[in-house]
């Protein structure tokens, strides 16, 4: 009985793995023949692929880096500061975190328009930096933090920055990596914002490339998919352990 269940589980895993594997295999199979012509056409005929690729890379890394800088102090504040309405504010963060993008896209658009950064890179990067997801997850993780290390640090220095960097960050390193990975994946996958908030083709990301399938020939799409997968795969291989250990979301009290 156990063997059967094991086998079923493995089968299921194979099924789940299938789309990824198939995409990779099919990229070498353009037009029914084995060959590299898909990649060939992608690399040497499709120049806007590069622009969009580097845009995606830029947005993802910059947003992830900056968001980590913002959420570390914020989560720390939630953990250690005392003020009225702290839990209510945190609750508000949670609700905001759960909002689907479509609800926020109009506010986003209007906000950016009024700030004059609508068709710019800043318009994509800035809102994403302040997404509440990281704060919530990091704060939950900080509950298991050791306060004495921070106390010891307080005796040594007055600078909050140093305390955060040397006493807090090392303890929550795992969670930071996990959140970073998650945020990166989110940015890498970003579709609505570049599509709706950017006019200039030069600023758009690779996800838009895929949504615009009329202008690209079919055999380019599979290789493009594979190339698109690689950066996030690399990061996952780096941080997969942290991903599983760092997301303790369920203690929401």
């Amino acid at each position: 009985m156990k063997q059967l269940l094991r086998f079923l589980l493995l089968l299921l895993a194979a099924v789940f793995f299938l789309p990824t594997l198939a995409t990779i295999l099919l990229s070498f199979y353009p037009d029914g023949q084995v060959g590299f012509s898909g990649y060939d056409e992608l690399f040497f005929d499709c120049f806007r692929f590069y622009t969009m690729f580097w845009n995606s890379v830029l947005y993802a890394y910059v947003i992830t880096a900056l968001q980590l800088v913002v959420i570390l102090p914020a989560a720390f504040a939630f953990s250690f500061a005392r003020f009225k309405g702290k839990e209510a504010l945190f609750f508000f963060y949670i609700i905001l975190m759960m909002m689907p993008l479509q609800v926020m896209i109009l506010p986003n658009y209007i906000g950016l328009r009024d700030m004059g950064i609508l068709n710019t890179r800043a318009g994509i990067i800035l809102p994403m930096i302040f997404s509440p997801f990281g704060v919530v997850v990091l704060r939950q993780y900080m509950k298991s933090m050791d306060g004495s290390v921070i106390e010891a640090m307080r005796l040594e220095t007055n600078s909050m920055v140093r305390i955060l960097l040397h006493a807090v960050a090392p303890q929550v390193k795992v969670c930071l990596y996990a959140v970073g990975l998650f945020v990166f994946a989110e940015c890498w996958n970003m579709l609505e914002q570049p599509m709706l908030l950017l006019q200039d083709e030069n600023l758009k990301t690779l996800t838009v490339f895929f949504s615009d399938t009329k202008n690209v020939s079919d055999q380019v799409l599979y290789p493009a998919s594979v190339v698109f997968m690689i950066p996030i795969l690399l990061l996952y291989l780096f941080f997969h352990r942290e991903l599983e250990r760092g997301l303790t979301l369920h203690e929401t009290n």
Partner: peptide
């Protein structure tokens, strides 16, 4: 190995970006 792989990947992409038009 992963670090090398990443550097390799981005390096190749950079190279392609710079030379794709000329090769084309």
């Amino acid at each position: 190995p992963l670090l090398l792989l990443s550097v390799l990947f981005y390096g190749v992409m950079l190279l392609l970006t710079l030379t794709a038009k000329d090769i084309h």
